[in-house]
């Protein structure tokens, strides 16, 4: 079987989080007897479902050499608006959540892609503004409980073929993301734009539009994450998701994405999220405080960054 050089590099990059994951499994399996049970592993899969969607969205933006700080607040806004919509229009209004994400993505993407504002400033401005919007629509940031929790409880906590339907939904979205990254023209355009923008422009790619689309995709995935959050919590949470965009960047970097653009590694990102979640769950099971988990997360991000720095051409300095 022939494996292309790009896929070989991706497989090699996967080995780091993969080995880390196995290592964590061994360590926690030894320290906490109930860690390596099917129930706990499925629990980890379910718990990582929100972050994995945000991280996949972030990966698309990172691949075009940009980043998006709004995704955390988009998750919160989508869950809150969706809860309000479901309360007034019934269950079909669950479709509002991805739509909210797409609208936010269009706005941010327009600022970065079309108008050429630095991604830090543009997404920071949108982040602050959207936090205001999320608080306005819910009236000073109160949670919005669902009037009828029947569907949400079924979707998030029932068991269909071994996993809750919401988790199957997330798996479906992961497959969709893999298809976009590996098989679609758009995925190739993301990578080309991120790798060498001038060259991409010369072969006729409209890079502004490509960047715009990457933000829309990120918004869509963040909106879906908001939907999953709403289903799992049973309430719209307008102040949730602070810092989630940062965890998403961290997960992508752990999974072998370089921030210098041109890398679209969905499998790596999924592995990165799995690694972070396994670490957090494992530390929780052996009874350490949540602060220690934070310290460990920070250390893991720094370690991933060191690996990234080692991979990069040594003649170029970071920053």
């Amino acid at each position: 079987m022939h494996i292309s050089p790009a896929n070989k590099a991706e497989l090699r990059a996967l080995m780091v989080p993969g080995a880390g994951l196995v290592g964590l499994g061994v360590i926690f399996g030894y320290l906490a007897p109930n860690f390596l049970t099917t129930g706990n592993l499925l629990n980890i899969v379910t718990q990582m479902s929100i972050l994995v969607l945000v991280a996949i969205g972030q990966s698309f933006v990172l691949s075009t050499r940009n980043f998006d700080l709004t995704l955390g607040v988009v998750v919160a806004l989508a869950s809150a608006v969706c809860a309000i919509a479901v309360n007034s229009w019934g269950s079909t209004a669950y479709l509002v959540a991805p739509f909210v994400g797409i609208v936010c993505g269009m706005l941010t993407g327009c600022l970065v892609g079309m108008l050429g504002i630095q991604p830090v400033v543009a997404t920071l401005g949108v982040l602050i503004g959207l936090r205001g919007v999320a608080f306005l629509v819910t009236g000073s940031g109160q949670v919005v409980p669902l009037a009828d929790r029947g569907f949400a409880t079924w979707a998030a906590y029932s068991n269909v073929f071994g996993l809750p339907p919401a988790t199957w939904f997330v798996c479906g979205l992961c497959v969709l993301a893999l298809w976009i990254a590996k098989r679609s023209v758009l995925g190739k355009k993301f990578v080309m734009t991120g790798e060498r923008r001038e060259a991409a422009q010369l072969v006729g790619i409209r890079c502004e539009h490509v960047v715009w689309k990457s933000y829309i995709l990120a918004g869509f995935f963040a909106g879906c994450a908001g939907l999953v959050l709403l289903l799992r919590a049973g309430t719209g949470l307008p102040s949730e998701g602070v810092g989630m965009e940062m965890q998403a960047i961290a997960a992508a970097v752990i999974g072998g994405t370089l921030l210098s653009g041109g890398y679209l590694r969905i499998f790596g990102t999924i592995f990165g999220v799995a690694f972070l979640q396994t670490l957090l769950t494992g530390l929780n099971l052996i009874g350490t405080s949540p602060f220690v988990a934070q310290i460990a997360t920070g250390a893991v991000i720094l370690a991933a960054g060191v690996l990234e720095g080692a991979v990069k051409n040594t003649s170029e300095v970071g920053a």
Partner: peptide, 16 residues
Amino acid sequence: FNLTSLIATLGMMIFL
């Protein structure tokens, strides 16, 4: 160590 400043300071932020 050639870290991107975003990653270095982000990791440091969570750690601290």
